[in-house]
Design a binder for these strands. Sequence first.
RNA 1: GCGGGCGUGAUGGAAUGGUAGACAUAUCGGACUUAAAAUCCGAAGGGCCUAUGCCCGUGUGGGUUCGAGUCCCACCGCCCGCACCA
Length: 847
Amino acid sequence: MARYEPQTSESNWQTAWDDAGVFTAKRDPAKPKYYVLEMFPYPSGKLHIGHVRNYTMGDVIARYKSSSGFSVLHPMGWDAFGMPAENAAMASGGHPADWTYGNIATMRDQMKPLGLSIDWSREFATCDPEYYGQQQSMFIDFMEKGLVYRKNATVNWDPVDMTVLANEQVIDGCGWRSGAPVERRDLTQWFFKISDYSDELLTAIDGLDNWPDKVKLMQRNWIGKSRGLQFAFERTDGGEAIEVYTTRPDTLMGASFVGISADHPIAKALEAENAEVAAFVAECRKGGTTEEALEKAEKLGFDTGIKVRHPLNPEWELPVWIANFILMDYGTGAIFACPAHDQRDLDFCRKYDLPVIDTFLSLDDPKPVETEAFVPPKTEKVKWINHFAGLDEATGDAAINATIDLAERDGWGKGQTQFRLRDWGLSRQRYWGCPIPVIHCDTCGVVPEAKENLPVELPKDVSFDVPGNPLDRHPTWRDCICPQCGGAAKRETDTMDTFVDSSWYFARFTAPRAETPTDLADAEYWMNVDQYIGGIEHAILHLLYSRFFARAMHICGHLPASAVEPFDALFTQGMVTHAIYQTRNAEGRPVYHYPDEVELRDGGGFLKDGTEVEIIPSAKMSKSKNNVVDPQDIISAYGADTARWFVLSDSPPERDVEWTAAGAEAANKHLARVHRIATDIAAQTGDGKGDEDLLRATHKAIHDVTMGIESFGFNTAVAKLYAFTNVVQKSKAGAEARREAMRVLAQLMSPMTPHLAEDVWAMLGGEGLIAQAPWPKADPAMLVEDSVTMPIQINGKRRSEISVPKDMAKEEVEKLALADDAVVKALAGNAPKKLIVVPGRIVNVVI
RNA sequence: GCGGGCGUGAUGGAAUGGUAGACAUAUCGGACUUAAAAUCCGAAGGGCCUAUGCCCGUGUGGGUUCGAGUCCCACCGCCCGCACCA
């Protein structure tokens, strides 16, 4: 009989599927539709095992839904714009487009042998002019709807390379190539008005029933709706009052100073006339722009000498300080500090010897603040010290409301709702991105390109030998005709953030060749994405931007109203990790070794020459650390099904998984075993005698595996398949009964190991392709157990067990439990204190 | 620093608040074999000399509960995000 030979059979089945057009998505009015989407990959060069895991999960869902009678859309494309292509061009010459399309070809070739049920006819890359031209068209639509504007924003500026740096290119406050300290610099940039949708994006989260709670919580916190008080501090020198926004107006009596951002108009005015201020503000502008960098930076302050009056007591004067931790982007760019109830303010005040005033004390432990700020939850009752609204004991929440009411009644402040969410800055001063289709005309100003001139294509003849944006220094590309007045004009040279590209690709997949961004009829049929799968690292930005885009596309007529929340269900998978093997060179710097260079023995790892390597366990796969596992090796050694089976088994999909070659070998052994059992059963002769146990096990397997797939419990589904395989193997039932069980096993395995499933199906006389066979159904009658084993606990510890009919009355169970030897012994003639019977689950006797 | 998550045998992990360790990997023992591989069968959280008996055990320390891996609080460690990485 034939052995398990995936190398030959897998490509044969892939051809068979292609010939039958099994995976071509068709609008079929007779069937419900199902849209499965995994986040599309960045074409970094090679597929890695993490991709295999991600796409296999999606494929299990796609194949399962297809078998369950759905018309399935399961597409694939490439998130193809971005910095690595330009970096590659800088490092080794060549053109970003060649590098990108070359990588796409390689990765597509690696992906196809996996046997994924993808409709490849819909493939596109975001760097295709056909795609980004439609994106430009939508940008113009968004402009017309008032969703696009320009304003100044801060970027990381490398003063040596004279170029804008991405956050990841800033290392310890310095440029990654030049090593020069990075400065913050203002540029005029393009923005999407996502803030128009702050409240809408927040409240709509409530409707995302099939999203993980953690993602919804992260999005809520990111949008950050808060209610606070806006009011002004009058200056003693008669200058313009300083507007501040605070979410803790209740602590106003503890105000120590007023702080303003280094970018605040007052700071800018002082900067022009005072050298000391200028020096301090320049110091504040050093370092990267990330919130993390700002928060972690040493808190610095500068006393401007300006004084303001406390709104509740005109006699009380507060100093105005410039502080490096205050953001101009949030609120009004000015705050008042209450050191007693904010650790950062306290640290600042101790450093600069500013007063610390308690406004409320703990009820349990009423002592004044010294080195640790007292910051109880706003729901906790505290004791107020001469509160201006007359409060004594009250929660923070109550005090905030009382303060806002008071300020509004007396007319010195106004309650206000504020969002943390900022508008989406989409400008990038880089070449390899979608050009912003806008023209700067001396007569007409900033005007959109005419749609008939789209796409505005990137010029091919560019060089990357100097830093900066090649579009800026291209000799002719910028020259154009103003679409409004017909005069000579210049193109915008900023390109779009790659998040724009990935904010609508899911919609484009519904009609990838349409001459408009979408085809409404196709979008109506296929949207929404029924199951979206991707990394948790995209929990906030990508998903939030996509939710905004879907709304913007809807008001521009590119998506139906039903698609404003584009992802019905979301699943976030973990990443695949692998140990890093390193030795040290003469200078003590680490040298990384590929896994196949290292032999593991005696609890250590050794190179061929016997040198012991240092093993760093479970690190995220990274090209630079040489710990990326290439699925190609596993596929050529064991076949695609082994790779698929392994990435699905053992680890729960949402958790990170450590790659081990041993696991792949073991997975392969199991698949070979299934093949062998099928071969044996196919050869089995004799009667068709059925078997109650086998039948029950079959229906239980159908039920368990189906539930496992439905709930993304692939690892537990695999465990159930192992158990069922053991039952089938050992079953003494007749030939036809075992064939039937084996066919069901093949079907249940088919979403995970589709090629092997076809092998087995064909061997056992299954009709047609298993990929097109309907999913088996469990008979509920076969799932019911007649009797159940109930553990008996004494004082919460398991001491015995009894077997009882499934629906035995509680009183009967109690009687049986009290008659149990262990219980009789423990009671020693006394009556139990308490007797707990959870029907069908457990008995607990409390003594 | 802020927001979110995770932590269970040698290993991956299982477990609607109800028998902790399902299922597997590695290991050990046995069968088969001239032998090996493959395959099949079996053992196995730690400890108490014996066990159908008892104690301990889900990162650490507390708490709620008849009962906690699961819920609450604090801490430790790791991971993700922090708006120009994708």
